[in-house]
Amino acid sequence: MKLIFKILLTAVAVVLLAKLLPGITVEGYTTAILVAIVLGLLNLIVRPIVIFLTLPATIVTLGLFLFVINACMILLADNLINGFEVSSFWTALLFSILLTILQSIFYAILGQDKEQL
């Protein structure tokens, strides 16, 4: 039940950011839910591998390279999902930062800790 709740919160955040950012397009709510599921799977499976492989770059940049990895996960989701469009790398970077902030706000408002979900 908590997983479904987390997916729905992420989908709401995706829809809100698609309406706010000019370079993001989401065709519908079903696509937003699919984006939330795919991003969750990518962050669960692909992201740890990429972080491990790029550990020297992450250390040299004092962790700022993790923003690049997050943007790449957004672009990968863009390539995997029809109906979800990201215009550029910089839009994906801004989208990933704002998505993280918006999810944190949602969890704080609802009184849910991110680790509990």
Score class of each variant (00 low, 15 high):
55 L>W: 12
4 I>S: 11
56 P>I: 03
96 S>G: 04
78 D>T: 14
24 I>C: 07
80 L>I: 13
59 I>A: 09
17 L>N: 10
15 V>D: 07
63 G>A: 06
74 I>R: 03
109 I>N: 09
11 A>D: 04
36 A>T: 07
22 P>N: 14
25 T>E: 11
117 L>I: 15
112 Q>K: 15
115 E>Y: 13
117 L>S: 13
100 T>R: 09
102 L>C: 05
108 A>E: 05
76 L>S: 10
61 T>V: 03
115 E>P: 01
102 L>K: 05
76 L>T: 13
106 F>V: 07
72 C>V: 15
69 I>N: 04
58 T>W: 00
44 L>P: 02
67 F>A: 09
82 N>Y: 03
47 R>K: 15
69 I>G: 02
19 K>W: 14
39 L>A: 06
75 L>D: 09
43 N>K: 12
78 D>P: 01
70 N>W: 09
103 Q>E: 14
93 L>S: 10
5 F>G: 10
84 F>A: 01
54 T>S: 14
16 L>T: 11
32 A>N: 09
101 I>E: 03
48 P>F: 07
21 L>R: 12
116 Q>P: 01
48 P>L: 04
15 V>P: 00
109 I>V: 15
53 L>A: 12
41 L>N: 10
71 A>E: 04
7 I>S: 01
33 I>D: 02
49 I>M: 04
2 K>E: 14
24 I>L: 08
23 G>K: 12
85 E>K: 14
80 L>E: 06
24 I>H: 02
84 F>S: 03
56 P>T: 09
18 A>K: 03
38 V>M: 07
46 V>K: 05
106 F>R: 01
30 T>V: 06
81 I>N: 05
114 K>F: 11
44 L>S: 13
92 A>K: 01
108 A>S: 09
4 I>F: 15
21 L>H: 08
104 S>I: 01
54 T>R: 03
46 V>W: 04
87 S>K: 15
22 P>C: 06
65 F>T: 05
101 I>Y: 08
35 V>H: 06
94 L>M: 11
89 F>P: 03
57 A>Q: 10
71 A>D: 10
9 L>H: 09
60 V>L: 14
87 S>Q: 14
46 V>P: 00
47 R>I: 00
95 F>P: 01
78 D>I: 02
36 A>C: 08
19 K>G: 10
17 L>A: 06
64 L>D: 11
80 L>V: 08
85 E>P: 00
40 G>V: 01
55 L>Y: 11
18 A>M: 02
